[in-house]
Design a protein around this nucleic acid. Structure first.
Length: 323
DNA sequence: GAATCGTGGGA
DNA sequence: TTCCCAAGATT
């Protein structure tokens, strides 16, 4: 299939070194001091950070990551615990399936890789919860490999800087991957710094809303600024939340995370006050769940979904986190 | 390709 | 208050 030509000429071989140098200098002076970027951070620490950072802001990941690495310094440490411990210690990071998959990845690393996080993209990609972005990111940032790392930040920077668009396309395309590959420095060390600096630029300066173009080290090269900051050609559709099954799932998960013992499913369908619970412990998330006023069918779907995903399991008539 | 999957903070 | 969206993966 023929693809449309880029809206702006791509940076040529003559311009790329200057672009690389500009972002290299900017990153050296402005990079955030994040623990998973420290030289002593292990590949396991990098992998945990990358999974936690999927769709979750840095500030919320930081304390949970610290606790995970303190408690489970190596993959085998996590693999030796029940999966439910991973889900519980995930706290309120969201998308708790990630905790389950990270636990499964730890077991795969212990059983299939001698307990060491693999450094090859193809091997990383085989791990549960690791997709194309995370595999490339771990290979690059933990092992210094030359990989084409493409996340939402990098896509947005490329869209503006090179293509002159306000936002990247709604779905990642093969053309974007080729563009990213064409911009990557040949030297492995330089490529790692480039990936990290473009991502950092997108996260802190070239943001989705209200970009700080005045602070941008490559604003003179930006196709979007040159084009007069054209508006997006589409409006992203928001994610519904209130009244959805997802909201109910989240509320049920909050109960299970706090429960010491299996929770009788009937409790999900009644107000804690009617059950004679004091407003403490498990009664707090139960009350929050009840306030959602979810239809019984909705609660059934949420529970069935959690059981199907392995985020909950039945045990002696109750529901609990997976063993 | 589109839908699904949490959560909380900032604009 | 409401809306947006943040280092995606999976089906």
């Amino acid at each position: 299939m023929p693809e449309p030509l880029p809206a702006a000429p791509l940076p040529g071989a003559a311009e790329l070194p200057a672009l690389h140098a500009a972002l290299d200098d900017w990153f050296a002076a402005n990079a955030r001091d994040l623990p998973w970027r420290a030289p002593e951070c292990t590949p396991w620490g990098v992998l945990v950070s990358e999974v936690m950072l999927q769709q979750t802001p840095v500030v919320r990941v930081l304390p949970v990551w610290e606790e995970w690495l303190r408690r489970w310094p190596e993959p085998s440490d996590l693999a030796g615990e029940p999966a439910g411990e991973a889900v519980r210690s995930w706290g309120r990071l969201g998308y708790p399936r990630r905790a389950l998959r990270l636990h499964a990845a730890a077991a795969a690393i212990r059983d299939g890789h001698g307990g060491l996080v693999p450094g090859a993209y193809a091997e990383l990609l085989e791990l549960p919860g690791v997709g194309s972005y995370t595999a490339a990111a771990v290979a690059a940032f933990a092992f210094g490999r030359r990989e084409t790392v493409v996340d939402t930040n990098i896509r947005r920077v490329h869209a503006r800087l090179v293509l002159g668009s306000a936002l990247p396309s709604q779905a990642l395309t093969a053309a974007e991957m080729r563009l990213a590959a064409s911009l990557l420095p040949a030297d492995p060390g330089a490529s790692v710094r480039w990936n990290a600096s473009v991502m950092e630029l997108g996260a802190t300066v070239c943001t989705a809303r209200a970009p700080k173009c005045g602070q941008c080290p490559v604003r003179e090269s930006c196709a979007w600024l040159a084009a007069g900051e054209p508006a997006p050609t589409y409006t992203p559709k928001g994610q519904a939340w209130h009244g959805t099954d997802r909201q109910v799932r989240g509320a049920v998960m909050a109960v299970l995370r706090l429960a010491e013992d299996p929770v009788a499913p009937e409790l999900f369908y009644r107000a804690p006050a009617d059950l004679g619970f004091e407003p403490q412990g498990i009664a707090i998330p139960l009350a929050a769940l009840h306030r959602l006023n979810a239809a019984p069918e909705q609660l059934e779907r949420a529970l069935a979904g959690l059981l199907g995903d392995g985020l909950a399991e039945l045990h002696l008539g109750g529901v609990r986190l997976p063993a």
